[in-house]
């Protein structure tokens, strides 16, 4: 089983668990498993079928964009983490 750490604002959708066990051979499979187990997470992680642009996924200390992105393979004891990209600004 791999594990994924949930950011504070989304923990209410995982029964207030900070870290949950998930299954998957790749990051993509593991994230799909996560939202299958906790469907209320889906609208905040995905836009349609794609991961939202402000959602960063780290494997250990590495952003998966610098690995093989969603195709990054996972070991049995992999530790993933969801990190929201905080951004804001005026309308124009």
């Amino acid at each position: 089983m791999a594990y994924i750490k949930i950011p504070t604002p989304l923990r209410q959708y995982t029964g207030n668990q900070a870290e949950v066990a998930i299954r998957g051979a790749t990051v993509d499979e593991a994230l799909r498993d996560l939202v299958a187990r906790y469907p209320a997470l889906a609208p905040h992680l995905y836009e349609g079928d794609d991961l939202r642009s402000f959602v960063n996924i780290f494997l250990g200390d590495e952003d998966i964009r610098f690995l093989q992105d969603l195709a990054t393979p996972l070991s049995e004891d992999a530790r993933l983490r969801i990190i929201p990209a905080i951004a804001g600004g005026m309308s124009f």
Partner: peptide, 21 residues
Amino acid sequence: HSHPDSPAVPSDYDRLHALPN
């Protein structure tokens, strides 16, 4: 965060990058 010379009201940009709770 600040909105320089602009109201303290969330923009669409803020909303698209926001999380609940």
